Simulated assay, not measured.
Amino acid sequence: MSKKLQVVLSKSVNKLGKDGDLVEVAPGYATNYLIPQGIAKLASPGIIKQVEQRKAKEQQRILAEREAAEAFQTALQAVGRFVVRKQVGEGESIFGTVTAQDVVDAIKASTGQEVDRRGVTLPDVGKIGFYKAQIKIHPEVTAEVEIQVASL
């Protein structure tokens, strides 16, 4: 049994790792394929230190994004209710439906901040009234807001 070699990937390799990852591979795989193709570099103490610093910066960036998302979640919940106005017919039924874009527009009008419409989850809205909507701000942060559907 030969020992494994540590290499730093210069490109993403399927089932091995992403660009900048420190991985252990068989010596033959490293010397015959990865290094000659320019896909990886042999890991030295200096390169390992750079990889660790890059990972630490990435962790800080992810943490800052999450904190910003949590602050926005708190701001959305502080506002409490967003009003969406639609044309109303008989029996308090609305014409059409309330879309995620309608909710995004109402949030932008109230808070001035953008929300991705693909992250908005709405129940079926067919009448005027109050509804709960889920807004995914960050992969780990979801806010629940109240939507009031009112007549024009």
Rank of each mutant, 00 (worst) to 15 (best):
A143R: 10
Q37T: 04
L34S: 10
L152Y: 02
T74K: 09
I137Y: 05
G96R: 07
S10K: 15
H138P: 01
A133P: 10
S44G: 13
K49V: 07
A143I: 06
D102L: 11
Q50A: 14
V84Y: 07
Q87V: 00
I94W: 05
Q87M: 01
S44H: 03
V84M: 06
A68L: 12
A43F: 00
K132P: 04
A78F: 01
V51D: 13
Q6H: 07
K127M: 08
G38F: 07
G80Y: 03
V98F: 00
K41A: 13
Q53W: 01
L34M: 12
D19M: 15
V115P: 05
F95E: 07
I35H: 06
A69V: 09
A30I: 05
D124Y: 10
T99D: 07
L152N: 07
F72T: 08
E90A: 08
I107Y: 03
I128T: 15
E90Q: 12
A106N: 11
I94H: 04
V141S: 04
I35F: 08
L9G: 02
A78H: 01
Q148H: 06
Q60E: 15
A68C: 01
Q73N: 09
S10H: 08
A71G: 01
A143T: 13
K41I: 03
T97K: 13
A109R: 12
I94K: 03
Y131D: 08
A109F: 05
G129F: 08
L152I: 01
L122V: 02
G112K: 13
V120L: 02
Y33V: 03
G96K: 05
L22E: 05
S10V: 15
D116V: 12
A100F: 02
S12H: 10
R54P: 00
S151L: 10
V13N: 07
I48H: 02
V120R: 00
Q60G: 09
I39P: 00
I107S: 00
I107R: 04
E70D: 05
A109V: 01
K127D: 01
Q73E: 12
V83C: 14
V8M: 13
E90H: 07
G80T: 05
Q134C: 04
Q59D: 14
